[in-house]
Amino acid sequence: MATDPLAPGVWGVVATPFTESEGDLDLGSLSKLVAHYRRIGVTGLTVLGVFGEAARLSTAEKRAVLEVVVDSADLPVVVGASSTSSAPVIEEIELAADAVGDRLAGAMVQVNTADPDALVHQLRVVHAATGAGLVVQDYPLVSGVSISAADLAAVVEQVESVVAVKAEAPPTPPAIATLTSRSAIPVFGGLGGVGLLDELAAGASGAMTGFSFPEGLKACVDAWWEGGYQAALEAYLRYLPLVNFEAQARIGLAIRKEALRRRGLITDSGVRAPAASMPETLDKQLDRHLAAVENMES
């Protein structure tokens, strides 16, 4: 199994659509969404992450999602592991490898301890059991674990199977600067793209996050490579109000899925409990944000 560093760019984080009536997987919408990512030219896909509600899916549902993704677009795939302990993480990665095959560019595992030595051991155990390249996700809001950027950099330096870091421990720009100064391993920003410009300035290789207009993430990253900060700023400005709107605590997932629905990319915007639905009081404002982006794109 390949353990090459992830390619720079935008790794589109894929939502998991559900049917309105029963809350079952909507595999038709999933295929349509993945095809959209392929059309806009993302570097690869990230599946079964937090945005994909992986922790609320059964094993059979996870397999179904992975099979539809690989059938819908010929792109490399990073697959998330929602567990934090070694044994269930290994099982999730084995499922991913079986379903995705040689398209598996990396398995995303969460930082599960603030002890650098223990984290090195955890990552080595997972890689030894699976052979997968590892994307280390530093996301304390989800994992409940905080590790310093310097300690995480030390871990990355010691574990050869790490193919990328997804930095989501605010403030992300100084953390990314520390990580990229210590290692050549690519670091990607997340958190809905709120800090993307500053993350690129700090040395990020791109974005790996959920946003209802992934075209905006790609426009920003491409402009950064072609013209630096000013070009990236101009490319991203039109999207920033919507980026900020989608970043609202507790309801961000529901807002993004509703925006995808209004764009015609999925049929329904339902989320699984305990995630909260988007308040109806935000309907008009979401329409305003979407219209503003669409008007500037036309």
Rank of each mutant, 00 (worst) to 15 (best):
M1L: 13
T3R: 15
D4P: 01
D4V: 11
V10H: 05
V13W: 03
A15M: 00
F18Q: 05
D24N: 12
L27M: 12
G28H: 12
S29G: 15
L30N: 10
L30A: 07
G41E: 00
A54E: 00
A55W: 06
T59Y: 08
A60F: 05
R63P: 06
A64F: 10
L66N: 03
E67P: 11
D74K: 14
P76S: 06
V77K: 01
S83H: 15
I90G: 02
L95Q: 10
A96K: 13
V100R: 01
V109D: 05
A114V: 07
D115I: 10
P116E: 06
A118C: 02
L119E: 12
V120I: 13
V120E: 08
V120Q: 01
H121G: 08
Q122P: 02
A128Q: 13
A128W: 11
A128Y: 12
G131Q: 11
A132E: 06
P140I: 10
L141S: 15
S148Y: 11
S148M: 12
A149E: 07
A150T: 14
A153Y: 11
A154I: 00
E157N: 15
E157Q: 15
V162C: 13
V163C: 09
V163Q: 07
K166I: 02
E168Q: 13
T172P: 03
A175C: 07
A175F: 13
T180Q: 12
T180W: 06
R182N: 09
A184F: 08
P186K: 14
G189R: 01
L196V: 00
L197W: 13
A201Y: 04
A201S: 10
S205Q: 10
G206A: 09
A207G: 10
G216E: 09
C220I: 03
D222G: 11
W224F: 12
A231T: 14
L233V: 14
L233G: 03
R238S: 15
Y239C: 02
N244C: 06
F245Q: 07
A247W: 00
A249L: 08
I251P: 00
L253C: 00
R256A: 06
L260Q: 09
G264R: 13
T267M: 06
V271H: 08
S277Y: 10
S277F: 09
P279C: 04
E280D: 15
H289I: 05
L290M: 00
A291P: 11
